[in-house]
Amino acid sequence: MRNGLDYLMSVVEHLDERESTVTARDVKYAVLHLQAAVEVLLKARLMAEHWSLVFSNPHQATRKALEEATLASVTTDQAVTRLRNIAAVPITDKEEKALTDLGKHRNKLQHFGLTAPARAMEAKAGEVLDFLIRFVDEELLPRLGPKERREAEETLLGLRWSLVNINTFVRERTNRIRGAVKKEGAENRTIRCPDCGQMALVLGETASRDGEPVPACRFCASRWEPEELLWFFRAEGQDEPSELNSCPRCGEWTLGWGVRVLVDPVGDVCFCFACSVAFPALLPCDRCGRPTDPADGSTTLCGSCWEDAVEEDRYGRADPTHYGYGPEQWDDDCDGEQQ
């Protein structure tokens, strides 16, 4: 698996548009190394199922041939078929076609150079990269020992950060994630991830961190506790969590400010990271700072401060108009007892 991840790092380096423009030569070597990564990583999963499955003809498999690397190994098409039929690995028809097309382009590159437009090849590479990252996350990492897994995750960490800079990868992966999120009806609880900046952090679902459930970004796999998210989504001028973060639904101090939600990717809203609910109309109370919903738009006082303000106004200790409370309303409520 280490060799496969090394090929993936090379692919990312060739397609990373952060440093320089991606050239036809970059795409050429990205495709060659991506195909090598496909072959190595698919075979790694077959090996995890049983070592004989990497042989073109398992009936002729011998340990000696495997250890000396003299075996005739499976093709990509054979590997996909065995992974589906024997290991029950979910590989869609679209993903299989992307892998097959990549193999065809690799063969053309080796014999004739780059014949397809570079951008078209880059898009194909983006499809396969998307598949391979999911494949590594779901099929290979869980089968590694503790030490190997730590090493692989360290490599993947750098790989994921670089992948964000590859436009085709971002587009392919984002489209797939958004399609899945919409199918699940989870657009109203999918927010922008503070790490990768993609609309892929789905609240209300969990991934394990040391045995504890925490939300994970579907794009970069970063995991977030509600308290951690608060540090990225604080109200203007806020230093520490406070009553500003009190959720009106669950009461927890897990309400973030300025959160971008997939269901409305234009405006920022308040969003509770505990109960996974957005509150588009909330504003901070003018007096205590607690979140409040100014239903009629006349004031931004919470219910408690509104009652306090009315009580103060009744006894002349405050100017009622300071709280958006007009003189006519004041006279009616206080029975004309203005002082």
Rank of each mutant, 00 (worst) to 15 (best):
residue 50 H to S: 11
residue 152 A to P: 07
residue 336 G to P: 09
residue 159 L to M: 07
residue 108 K to E: 14
residue 25 R to P: 02
residue 335 D to N: 13
residue 246 S to H: 10
residue 250 C to T: 05
residue 189 R to E: 10
residue 123 A to S: 12
residue 125 A to R: 01
residue 249 R to E: 14
residue 106 R to T: 02
residue 191 I to R: 00
residue 306 W to N: 04
residue 272 C to S: 08
residue 82 R to L: 10
residue 29 Y to D: 05
residue 58 P to F: 04
residue 65 A to N: 10
residue 316 G to D: 05
residue 183 K to G: 06
residue 260 R to I: 14
residue 108 K to H: 10
residue 30 A to T: 04
residue 159 L to P: 05
residue 58 P to W: 08
residue 140 L to S: 03
residue 218 R to I: 03
residue 209 R to P: 00
residue 2 R to E: 13
residue 41 L to H: 05
residue 139 E to C: 10
residue 227 E to D: 13
residue 128 V to T: 03
residue 257 W to P: 09
residue 77 D to P: 00
residue 25 R to V: 15
residue 289 G to L: 13
residue 55 F to E: 00
residue 202 V to Y: 00
residue 56 S to L: 10
residue 90 P to A: 12
residue 12 V to R: 14
residue 319 D to H: 08
residue 5 L to I: 13
residue 83 L to V: 11
residue 326 G to A: 15
residue 212 E to V: 15
residue 50 H to P: 00
residue 80 V to G: 02
residue 34 L to M: 05
residue 100 T to Q: 13
residue 140 L to F: 02
residue 228 E to F: 04
residue 209 R to S: 08
residue 330 W to L: 01
residue 12 V to Y: 00
residue 156 L to D: 04
residue 183 K to E: 14
residue 3 N to R: 13
residue 131 F to W: 08
residue 199 M to W: 03
residue 214 V to R: 12
residue 274 A to M: 08
residue 269 V to L: 09
residue 325 Y to L: 14
residue 91 I to N: 09
residue 304 S to K: 09
residue 238 Q to S: 10
residue 77 D to K: 13
residue 19 E to T: 14
residue 253 W to F: 12
residue 16 D to R: 10
residue 229 L to D: 06
residue 190 T to E: 01
residue 139 E to L: 07
residue 310 V to M: 15
residue 69 A to N: 15
residue 240 E to T: 15
residue 244 L to I: 09
residue 235 A to T: 01
residue 107 N to F: 06
residue 34 L to Q: 08
residue 189 R to C: 12
residue 180 A to D: 12
residue 122 E to C: 04
residue 76 T to D: 03
residue 309 A to K: 02
residue 40 V to T: 11
residue 277 V to H: 13
residue 208 S to V: 08
residue 114 L to Y: 04
residue 211 G to Y: 07
residue 132 L to M: 15
residue 140 L to G: 01
residue 54 V to C: 05
residue 166 I to H: 02
residue 10 S to I: 09
residue 157 L to V: 04
residue 282 L to C: 09
residue 168 T to A: 11
residue 334 C to Q: 12
residue 186 A to H: 06
